Simulated scan of single mutants.
Amino acid sequence: MLDIAEVAQRTRLAPSALRFYEKKGLIAAAGRNGLRRTYDPDVLERLALITCARSAGFSIAEIERFLVARPSDADLRARMAIKARDLDEQIGQLTRLRDSLRHAAVCDHEPIVDCPDFKRAVGSVATSSSPCEER
């Protein structure tokens, strides 16, 4: 068993966040050690999933529905597929931005943001082509 302080330390989440997630039904305490909540070690995996989903833009309500999803929930599965497509687009945009920043780190154009290669790569939100070449 892990007490709330250990879970907070391992997950880098505030104890208040853990209590909030518990209140929302996303995690459950296994019991108490005095006044402190205790959790089964498997809560760490669930919190990793929750943290990942939050960083991907999922709301608490979406995560709540996702955690109880069943194969028969066609509506939820359709929303999950839409969210996956949205994430693919976001990943593409972030990848292009990362590659553009890498280019800017070695570019000698003044100012860097006016570099045609940089502009092309950052502005090509709808394409998945390779970003600008390093000079």
Rank of each mutant, 00 (worst) to 15 (best):
D114N: 13
A104K: 08
E62D: 10
D99C: 09
I27T: 12
F20L: 13
L18I: 00
D88W: 04
C132T: 13
F20S: 04
D99M: 12
R37I: 04
L101C: 06
L87T: 05
I60H: 06
D99V: 08
S129L: 13
R37L: 02
R65D: 14
I82T: 13
T127Q: 08
V106K: 10
T51W: 07
A53G: 14
R102Y: 07
P71A: 09
V7C: 07
S16E: 13
L2G: 11
L76R: 02
V125G: 04
E134L: 15
F58C: 11
F118T: 02
D73N: 06
S130W: 12
L26D: 11
G25T: 01
K24Y: 04
V68D: 08
R79H: 07
L35S: 14
G57K: 07
A69V: 15
E89P: 00
C52H: 15
A8E: 01
C52G: 13
L13Q: 09
S55F: 12
A78C: 00
L44T: 06
E64Y: 06
A69I: 15
A84N: 08
E110N: 08
C107W: 00
D99T: 12
V125C: 00
I91F: 02
R77Y: 06
P41Y: 05
I50P: 10
D99Y: 08
H109Y: 09
E133I: 10
A78K: 09
A104R: 07
A56T: 14
R32I: 05
N33H: 13
L35Q: 15
K23W: 00
V113I: 14
G31S: 10
R36Q: 12
P111D: 04
A126H: 09
A121H: 04
A8N: 05
P15R: 05
L44R: 08
R70S: 15
Q9A: 14
A105M: 06
V125Y: 02
A69W: 10
A84E: 12
R70T: 15
L35F: 06
R36A: 12
T11Y: 00
L2T: 10
L101W: 02
A84V: 11
E62Q: 13
R120K: 12
R77N: 10
D99F: 08
G92Y: 00
R70L: 14
L13P: 00
G123P: 01
D114G: 09
D117A: 15
G25L: 05
L18M: 01
L44M: 09
Q90D: 09
A29I: 04
S124L: 05
H109T: 12
L87S: 01
E45Q: 15
I60S: 10
I91V: 06
P111V: 03
A14Y: 01
I60K: 08
E110P: 08
L49C: 05
E64R: 14
I27R: 07
E64T: 05
C52E: 14
I112Q: 04
R37K: 03
D73A: 01
A69E: 12
R85S: 12
R135Q: 13
L13W: 03
I60M: 11
L47R: 04
D3C: 05
L13S: 04
A69M: 14
A74I: 10
L13M: 13
R77F: 04
P15C: 01
I82S: 11
